[in-house]
Design a protein around this nucleic acid. Structure first.
Lengths: 296, 296
DNA sequence: CCGACGATGTAGCGTGGCTGCATGGATCCC
DNA sequence: GGGATCCATGCAGCCACGCTACATCGTCGG
């Protein structure tokens, strides 16, 4: 019952395959396959079953993968118990954030981390369903989800950072630009600039449009808010942009929505075992404090 | 952070030394020493310190050993999670009991265990302080302690099996043999047959004697209740014997004590990680049921 | 002061796990 | 429908890690 093999099994589950698991574990697919084979032989139950050209975990495999998480947590706790006797937390922490949050958080986070702690940043913008998978490669994943969307599941630790309202961005010359707020009904017929399918904000737009009673007319799908903002400024449509992290832009006016609650939640996602590491905790604490500052 | 090394560290603590730990782990002292050395190098803190010609754990070592227990528990839970998908629990369980409990429990326990489960019995009669250490070698340790004695510590799981009154054993020709019960005051001046220093019942005798107001006159120290019973029968003294497991004897009469609560508790001691094993649980359940039968 | 005990280094061997490559299915797409 | 592709899995070979055996050093008892 090798913890490394258990970790490998978990990776196979979360990454959805041997090859993908091998990727995050920095191993060859062969090694991964052998590890789960040995594991299955040890416990005497099949842990995986072929499905198509891939595989999935059997119920026993699922149960073992769940238990593997507790093993990993216990091991990290053991490590932390010793690190507590050292002077200060040291080590490197990998942090990722989707583009706009990266701009909002990462520069200020980097200037806050104490000496001896290395923070490796990355901007990872993935579809909603893929944020959790990132936690295998990255210690702290800053992710976002629309208000009221389902949670991230019970296999990751979720630390809420911020709730950010989504405003309607219109060009300064727009017929609505003079208003202080805007109601969904006033937006019927507008040309919308949304994000790619599956990305967090797209469902919010659908909800806003539903409140206006009409199907939204989406003319562009742009993930980068800077680009979207520029397109809005140039009069190519209106868009939903986050109030704090829209990336700023000339020629654009943000109008808070009334009559409908539109916003996104920004959460930090961590694997429970990684969350036990003292270095990770220290960086996470800074991130939370930073979020509190921004919110306040 | 190898779980095997963590287990080794725990063994060094409970067994009180490298050599003793190597013994229960079936390793050479050199291997044990190397494992803790590597572990200490990994975490960057000294885990042990020399004291005399032996060693003891540093505070960090203690903390890590505590955490190691949780790791072991998590690993066994993982194993159990898979075993739950197998038909029935299989494997071998080592059970030990002190002599009189061995006679009381083991024969009936062996005839109760389900097929596929091997129970390896041993009669281990050790001093009170050494019962806990046995759990490193043996899955279920049946131990006893006097009423009101301190607990076994928080590093072992304790399952109470039975409370057994201790009666005064007198020869059938004794002046008190005709009575139904006996009071401590009536026992002043008697010659006592006790057990070796440090063994569970000796403190109870001290308590009984204290109730009679006199120092007990101990003329023999016999651990085996059969031998003690024979000596009583032959008129060489009186003794405190457990009501159910005294081993039977001709020419001896057991008188319940009044005015003082004299008894011993019989507990099953398990390492928390071993307690997670399904086979162990099944045997333990049988043992509890057996104890309930005897008690009732 | 010598003998015994207990922990710790060192050399050498064996085993276990990983890489690289080849194989066997299953799916996609033209 | 058939070739190309992707994915998991066997197999040989190599490397490294951990154990044993033996030697050494320090400490306690007689």
């Amino acid at each position: 019952m090798d913890p490394r093999a258990l970790e490998t099994l978990r990776a196979v589950r979360t990454q959805g395959g041997v090859t993908a698991a091998a990727d995050v574990l920095h191993l060859t697919p062969s090694a991964v396959s052998q590890q789960v084979a040995v594991l299955a032989r040890d416990v005497g139950v099949a842990l995986t079953e072929r499905v198509g050209r891939g595989l999935r975990l059997t119920p026993a495999g699922e149960a073992l993968a769940d238990a593997a998480l507790d093993v990993a947590v216990a091991l990290e706790r053991a490590q932390a118990a010793c690190d507590g006797f050292l002077a200060a937390p040291r080590g490197t922490v990998r942090v990722s954030a989707f583009a706009s949050a990266a701009q909002l958080f990462l520069p200020r986070l980097l200037s806050r981390v104490p000496h001896g702690v290395d923070v490796e940043c990355a901007d990872e913008d993935v579809a909603q369903a893929d944020f959790v998978g990132l936690t295998d490669r990255i210690d702290i994943v800053v992710a976002h989800r629309p208000d009221g969307a389902g949670s991230w599941g019970d296999r990751v630790r979720v630390v809420p950072l911020l709730r950010e309202p989504l405003d309607v961005a219109v060009p300064t010359g727009h017929r609505l630009a003079g208003q202080e707020t805007v109601h969904p009904a006033e937006l019927a017929g507008e040309a919308w600039i949304s994000v790619r399918e599956g990305f967090p904000i797209s469902t919010v737009l659908a909800a806003v449009a539903a409140a206006s009673g009409t199907e939204p007319r989406i003319v562009h799908r742009i993930n980068d808010f800077h680009v979207a903002s520029s397109l809005v400024a140039a009069g190519h449509g209106v868009s939903l942009l986050p109030r704090h992290s829209h990336g700023g832009g000339e020629g654009v006016r943000l109008l808070p929505l009334t009559g409908v609650r539109a916003g996104r939640r920004i959460d930090a996602l961590l694997r429970p075992d990684r969350a036990e590491r003292l270095v990770v905790r220290s960086v996470l604490d800074e991130l939370c404090a930073l979020a509190a500052e921004i919110d306040g």
